[in-house]
């Protein structure tokens, strides 16, 4: 039982580099849970009881706007974790509502257990700190970008950073690009059309073809 949990936990990116000893400790307290599509896993604003680590399936993380509109923040899949931040705050509350999109299997670790593990197991503490540091890094860059650059500038920089020459390593939906830039899909679509009109890019059916490096670099400075 613990053995198979250890196998599954190793596939969680946060735990990938941990020793067997650490994983066994985690496996002893990780509870496996399954959800059917549409089932709610956490509710925004409720007291945070546990952190969750997805073994299989997809979940959708969302908030409701004041008008009651659902705003999807992100979709997460195998290997990813959620509810980590409120877990380390005194009396933390869930940041968002999380719902299963597909059949989901995940591991839940309660606040109490995770706090104890962090005390017992420095390598887990370090792995968590690394994860928090990289998120903080991303947010710091995003805040700088939001305050210093227009969406045009951010998109130009994003395209320069992600333009590929040989093998295609990943594909992006406009929604994902928007989430990355801290804006909304409509703005990404509109800005891409503006870039196309200016001859900086060409929109093929399923490709954004970058045409003018200098022009994009100039945009990225804005």
């Amino acid at each position: 039982m613990v053995e198979s949990t250890v196998q599954a936990l190793r596939r969680i990116s946060l735990f990938a580099d941990l020793s067997d000893d650490a994983l066994i400790r985690i496996a002893r307290v990780a509870r496996s849970q399954t959800y059917v599509p549409g089932e709610v896993i956490t509710i925004r604003g409720e007291p945070c009881r546990a952190a969750y680590f997805i073994a299989e399936g997809q979940v959708r993380v969302y908030r409701l706007s004041p008008g009651g509109r659902e705003q999807v923040l992100v979709q997460l899949g195998p290997g990813q974790a959620f509810n980590m931040v409120p877990l380390f705050k005194p009396h933390g509350a869930n940041h968002a509502t999380v719902e299963a999109l597909t059949p989901v299997t995940l591991y839940a670790i309660t606040c109490k257990d995770l706090h104890r593990l962090v005390g017992e197991c420095p390598e887990l503490a370090l792995a968590l700190l690394r994860d928090f540091a990289s998120r903080l890094d991303h947010l710091t860059n995003l805040v700088e970008d939001l305050s210093l650059r227009t969406v045009r500038g951010r998109l130009a920089r994003f395209l320069l950073e992600h333009g590929e020459t040989n093998a295609i390593t990943r594909r992006w939906t406009q929604e994902e690009i928007a989430a990355h830039l801290g804006t909304v899909r409509d703005m990404v679509g509109r800005t891409l059309r503006a870039f196309a009109d200016a001859g900086l890019v060409r929109m093929d059916r399923q490709r954004i073809v970058l045409l003018d490096r200098e022009g994009l670099e100039a945009e990225a400075q804005r």
Binding site: L101, H162, R171, T173, Q206, R207, I208, L210, L211
Partner: peptide, 16 residues
């Protein structure tokens, strides 16, 4: 409403 459809793009350099 389910986020079931995606229209992904490749981002490529080119004059290809």
């Amino acid at each position: 409403p389910q986020g079931a459809i995606t229209c992904p793009y490749e981002i490529v350099w080119g004059t290809d």
